[in-house]
Amino acid sequence: MIIRIMGEGQYRAPETLCDDLNQIDNRILDLVEEGKADEFRKELSKLISEIKEKGEAIEAKEILQSDIIVPPEDLSIEEAKAVFKGSGIFEG
């Protein structure tokens, strides 16, 4: 799976990582719904860190279609309400 972090690049993620990311995504959904901005920011930061640490960075010269687009860490909770809804950014 190809994941783009807005403003930071793309990463190739193995399926096992996607399962872990989906769990974080589900927590983010709950926190956004509850309006818990500080906790939301921590989980979004954790999501991005996991992708960077455990995914494989894709060189900028290689152009691939992203399966998932992750918003930047500075996303406000108000903006997050439009992004993290339904089943979130990770299906499942």
Rank of each mutant, 00 (worst) to 15 (best):
R12Q: 15
L75F: 07
A13I: 10
I2N: 10
K61E: 04
M1D: 08
E56C: 09
K52C: 07
F40C: 03
Q65D: 15
I63L: 15
M6N: 02
L75S: 14
I58V: 14
G86R: 04
D30T: 00
R4C: 05
G7P: 11
E73S: 12
K81R: 13
I58F: 12
D67W: 04
L29W: 07
I77W: 03
P71Y: 11
E73G: 14
I77S: 08
K54T: 04
F90R: 00
R4V: 00
I48H: 05
P14W: 03
A60F: 10
R4M: 07
N22R: 12
A60N: 11
Q23V: 12
K85H: 10
K85A: 06
D67P: 11
I68P: 06
S49N: 11
D38L: 10
G35N: 10
L29A: 03
I48C: 02
L44V: 02
K52V: 01
E78H: 05
G9W: 00
G88I: 08
G92C: 05
E34P: 00
L64Y: 09
I3P: 08
L31M: 10
I3K: 01
E73M: 01
L47Q: 09
I48W: 03
S49A: 15
Y11H: 11
E79Y: 02
E62S: 13
E43V: 08
R4Y: 01
K85T: 09
R27G: 03
D38G: 15
M6G: 05
I28M: 09
